[in-house]
């Protein structure tokens, strides 16, 4: 087990190192002079340009700037935004709270409805058909389409939910985040539901399950001990990937409902070429993605000790 965790961590670190180098390197190659982006509209004098180049270490070789950048991030200094002229940590802190709440809310919905409907569908019959049809539609329903439908039906026609901002904490925030969370969740619900159904059905037809059924063991217990447990690593793996990619997709829900989250900042920074902000957020999203996947792998090994042996 320990060996597996260590191997996971090693893989995680090497992926992060390469990804961070690529993210940093790519933006060094960005066409256009970073100095003019930093100075903005001011008429540049040679002294000003030299000053800016020195401030942002633009004259150092790329690898040195990369090491400085990584070192800064590790010690908590994320750098300065070129557009806002403030520290990126100050920009990010409140926005991370918004995005994390939104993703946690959506992930809860995905886990409950996605896995729930998958279990329901695995029992066969009319439910299976209903879930099959609705997940087919759901898989083609991207966040921005669900968002406009929800805004139209629940905000405009029924007037049940507010559509802008995050509210003033507690219950109000939950109400403000309901439509964004649902719009973010739909496509992932369909996906998780399909996978859950598939892996449960695959387990149900296995020999030891048939044997247990013939021996007269109550079906609820068979389901819990033999079907669900054996299917859970796969369900978990998919849920973990889903959760991780939600951080990226959250940008769309944030845009649709005017939430000031990390994704909205990412979009804005990309459109205004605020390169330092883009770098940090891209690295953040990659880190979350990689960490979530590694965590899922470790939990899967805990549930199913066999996967430990076969992989180690």
């Amino acid at each position: 087990m320990l060996r597996r965790v260590l191997a996971q961590l090693g893989g995680l670190l090497s992926t992060l190192v390469i990804a961070s180098a690529v993210i940093f390197g790519a933006l060094v190659l960005t066409p256009g002079d970073p100095v003019s982006a930093i100075i903005g509209g001011v008429q540049p004098t040679p002294e000003l340009i030299a000053q800016v180049r020195a401030d942002h270490h633009l004259d150092a070789p790329v690898w040195e700037r990369y090491l400085q950048w990584v070192g800064g991030i590790l010690s908590g200094d994320l750098g300065q935004s070129m557009v806002y002229k403030t520290s990126i940590s100050a920009l990010l802190a409140p926005r991370i709270a918004v995005t994390a709440t939104l993703v946690a809310y959506a992930a809860t919905i995905v886990a409950l409805v996605g896995i729930g409907s998958g279990i329901l569908a695995s029992r066969g019959g009319p439910w299976d058909q209903a879930v099959l049809v609705s997940t087919t539609v759901g898989l083609a329903m991207p966040t921005f389409v669900v968002a406009i439908l929800l805004v139209w039906v629940f905000a405009r026609l029924l007037g049940w939910f507010p559509v802008l901002g995050v509210g003033d904490g507690g219950w109000d925030t939950l109400r403000h985040l309901t439509l964004p969370a649902v719009s973010l969740a739909i496509i992932y619900i369909a996906y998780v539901s399909r996978i859950t159904r598939g892996s449960l059905v695959a387990q149900q037809t296995r020999e030891h399950v048939e044997t247990a059924r013939v021996r007269g063991i109550p079906s609820a217990r068979i389901f819990r001990a033999h079907v669900l447990r054996n299917a859970s690593p796969q369900i978990l793996a998919v849920s973990g990937t889903t959760f991780a990619s939600m951080f990226a997709t959250a940008a769309i829900a944030e845009q649709a409902f005017g939430l000031g989250g990390v994704g909205a900042l990412f979009t804005e920074a990309a459109s205004r070429k605020d390169i330092p902000v883009v770098q940090v957020i891209a690295l953040l999203m990659v880190s979350i993605f990689v960490a979530a996947n590694a965590l899922v792998d470790i939990i899967a090994a805990l549930i199913d000790p066999r996967s430990d042996r076969t992989h180690a």
């Binding site: 992060l16 933006l27 990309a270 993605f289």
Partner: peptide
């Protein structure tokens, strides 16, 4: 490790 949408925004 890099979601498609993140790479596209990048």
């Amino acid at each position: 490790a890099v979601p498609g949408l993140v790479l596209a925004v990048l």
